[in-house]
């Protein structure tokens, strides 16, 4: 084995013709490693990998790919070094499954830890953490204690709403779910109503919404739950702490009062994973108690595992009620939602 590795290094140096072999080794199967392609930001996911390595001795090599993860894996084909693919939203997970880039696994550990609604019915992908798409309001200027997503289109918010781009996956997810609930036409009306209420052009990130609320540009906006933890914890610096403290977080429901829009991050084992066993081990580790705790404490996400502890900053937001529409149904409307955003001209 060792010989083969060295030999392959030599060939790669010869073929590539660049003095890169030392620093950038071509990847391949090794005894104790697992390769991860992730659209999850490394800062959010790295602590997990470190814990995994500590526990198992298996080295995790992760590459953060923002877009094109699926395209890259597809192009690499049979020789892809990827073992585990992690994605930041369920739409991408479903996309991976539809394109046949992942493989089914049968793991009792995973099946027990992850509730059925939060994993691929076919055994492909598994959700690892959750976050709610919350409504943020100005602490000082808004007194409402409960709000619905539909309420964002209420004319009383005219000129007071801030969001990131409508085409961002976080918003596409919410709009898709609205479509599942109310149909395309009503969702179009709703989205046009929200657009009419905008206080500024959609753009930036969720945290910009909090900052703009602090600045008085808006009074109400949409943002993911974990950002509240990140801001309020002071991990992003003093400024962000002040943004986080300018808002009050409402975990809204749809008009049917069933629950909040929740998106998941998740992972799946790549179809041609060279280290499949290690990938499964890592995946199992990620739904274990220690990892779920890290998700909660470092990333301020909701653990998928029943009974895992939620970080106090997030727990303080109130009890999360999860909207029961199945993720697959929501994902099916994504393309339509995206076209709706275009039609309404939400981002223009």
């Amino acid at each position: 084995m060792r010989f083969i590795r060295d030999w392959r290094h030599a060939v790669s140096v010869l073929l590539v013709g660049l003095p890169l072999a030392a620093g950038l080794t071509p990847t391949g199967a090794a005894a104790a490693e697992v390769n991860v392609y992730t659209t999850r930001e490394p800062g959010l996911i790295k602590p997990l990998f470190e814990a995994f390595t500590k526990q198992t001795g298996i080295e995790v090599r992760a590459t953060f790919v923002q877009q094109g993860l699926a395209e890259r894996v597809a192009a690499e084909g049979r020789n892809s070094p990827a073992d585990l693919l992690t994605e930041a939203d369920y739409g991408s997970l479903i996309n991976l499954a539809e394109r046949g880039l992942i493989q089914k696994i049968d793991s009792p550990i995973l099946n027990t830890a992850v509730p059925a609604a939060l994993r691929d019915p076919d055994g492909g992908w598994y959700a690892l953490s959750m976050r709610a798409r919350a409504i943020w309001v100005s602490k000082d200027r808004v007194s409402d204690q409960t709000l619905t997503y539909e309420g964002l289109a209420d004319p009383r918010w005219k000129g007071r709403v801030c969001t990131r781009a409508g085409q961002h996956p976080y918003n596409i997810g919410l709009i898709s779910r609205m479509m599942v609930k109310t149909g395309a036409e009503a969702t179009g009306k709703w989205l046009a109503g929200v657009r009419a209420n905008l206080g500024r052009k959609p753009g930036g990130g969720d945290r910009d919404v909090a900052r703009d609320i602090l600045a008085g540009i808006c009074d109400i906006g949409i943002g993911n739950s974990y950002y509240v933890g990140l801001m309020r914890s002071g991990k992003g610096g003093k400024n962000q702490e002040s943004w986080g403290n300018a808002i009050r977080v409402i975990l809204p429901t749809f008009a049917d009062d069933k629950g909040s829009h929740v998106d998941v991050s998740g992972a799946a084992v790549a179809r041609f994973a060279p280290n499949k066993d290690n990938a499964v081990k890592l995946l199992e580790f990620m739904v274990g108690d220690e990892a779920q705790k890290i998700y909660a404490e470092i990333d301020y996400e909701y653990p998928v595992k029943e009974g895992a502890k939620i970080d106090p900053l997030i727990a303080a937001l109130g009890k999360l009620k999860i909207d029961p529409e199945p993720l697959t149904a929501v994902a099916a409307r994504r393309k339509e939602a995206s076209q709706l955003v275009d039609k309404i001209g939400y981002d223009n």
């Binding site: 083969i4 030999w7 392959r8 060939v11 790669s12 073929l15 590539v16 660049l18 890169l20 072999a21 620093g23 950038l24 080794t25 071509p26 990847t27 391949g28 890259r72 690499e76 020789n79 892809s80 070094p81």
Partner: peptide
């Protein structure tokens, strides 16, 4: 009978 894997994309080339 040996696999080279992904030389270009694996090496930074």
């Amino acid at each position: 009978g040996l696999s080279t894997g992904l030389l270009l994309s694996g090496s930074g080339a």
